[in-house]
């Protein structure tokens, strides 16, 4: 479907792991730096990705978009923020005209125009987030803060792994993470700690980020609803074909506290890199090989790559040795 071709825009997941160290779950949220708070990114794959996203939304509307009726005002607040981010970063691609509450949003990459009365859901055919979300390649989730927890009340998802608005709707942060073997290096349970950190530290005007990663065998889109089709392909990987079949699947995540709804907007930018493309950045190749060689069993089981982690590591080992041989 699409692979990242501009490696400068690829969110390599292990930047913040010290050389020689392994990967374990932790509270790895980082505050975004002042000039990097904008989650709108246009990569060379933009049009391809939008096309596929819209197909998925059309094929499985109920699986891909869910919301509660009381979330309309919350969704409009997100619409305003996303449009502002898009126009601010890419004025050559996006433009907005505001005539009182009558807004016209131009997307010049796709040559599309959206006209609506801001705040009036009856002026559009889709729900506000479903409409604006179709102009961006990222997935969007609104986690509403109520008392001590965050509740999933709106979501539009096409790429994020093991995620389904239909399945996850209404769940708390803790319920969503229940399948994850979410413990720290020293065995401390993380869900409550991370949830509290989100509630206390992701504040309006101060967005945060983290990166999630996985490995995919010959498949782009993985959610529970389609497990029967992608589950078996995981057994086809060998040290010879892993370079083509296996991809590093990365989710760059952004967390914005919405000032009026007090919800956290969770944005996921999913990108893929084929194992064979790691040679383009030898330091990535070396580190990825070393990290994949030391993944705890429960984590590999959970992430779903235990059927092919061994041939993949074998492939990377051969590649690392080949490069060392060439440079020596």
């Amino acid at each position: 479907m699409y692979e990242s071709t501009n490696l400068d825009l690829f969110p390599y997941p292990f930047h913040n792991i010290k050389e020689g160290s392994n990967y374990r779950y932790s509270n790895d949220l980082r505050k975004l730096e002042k000039d990097h708070t904008n989650c709108v990114v246009i990569t060379p794959e933009y049009e391809k990705q939008i096309k596929r996203k819209r197909e998925l939304l059309k094929e499985q509307p109920a699986v891909r978009f869910q919301s509660y009726p009381h979330t309309m005002a919350m969704q409009w607040e997100v619409v305003e923020m996303l449009i502002e981010m898009a126009v601010d970063r890419y004025p050559e691609h996006f433009q907005v005209e505001k005539n009182g509450n009558h807004w016209t949003f131009h997307n010049y990459i796709l040559n599309e125009t959206e006209s609506f009365i801001f705040g009036d859901a009856s002026s559009i055919e889709l729900e506000p987030l479903d409409l604006i979300g179709r102009h961006f390649t990222t997935d969007f989730v609104l986690m509403v803060h109520r008392d001590d927890n965050l509740y999933l009340e709106v979501a539009q998802e096409s790429y994020a792994a093991l995620f389904s608005p239909h399945w996850n709707k209404g769940m708390t942060f803790d319920e969503i993470h229940a399948p994850v073997p979410f413990v720290s290096r020293t065995g401390v349970p993380l869900a409550e700690r991370v949830r509290n950190f989100l509630i206390r530290n992701v504040l309006p005007g101060e967005p945060w980020t983290r990166i999630n990663w996985n490995l995919m065998a010959n498949r782009w889109d993985v959610n529970y609803e389609t497990f029967d089709t992608w589950g078996p392909t995981r057994f086809l990987v060998t040290p010879e074909n892993a370079g083509d079949l296996v991809r590093l699947r990365v989710e760059e995540q952004f967390f914005y506290r919405m000032p009026r709804s007090n919800a956290i907007l969770f944005v996921l930018n999913t990108q893929f890199l084929a194992m064979k493309d790691l040679v383009l950045r030898p330091e990535w190749l070396n580190q990825t090989y070393s990290i994949l060689s030391d993944i705890p069993k429960p984590m590999a089981e959970y992430k779903g790559f235990s059927p092919f982690i061994e041939p993949t590591v074998e492939y990377l080992k051969n590649l690392v040795e080949k490069i060392e041989f060439q440079t020596n």
Partner: peptide
């Protein structure tokens, strides 16, 4: 000024 922050929100449940 900062953006508005809320450490004293209304209870819900």
């Amino acid at each position: 000024i900062s953006w508005p922050k809320n450490h004293f929100p209304l209870a819900f449940k």
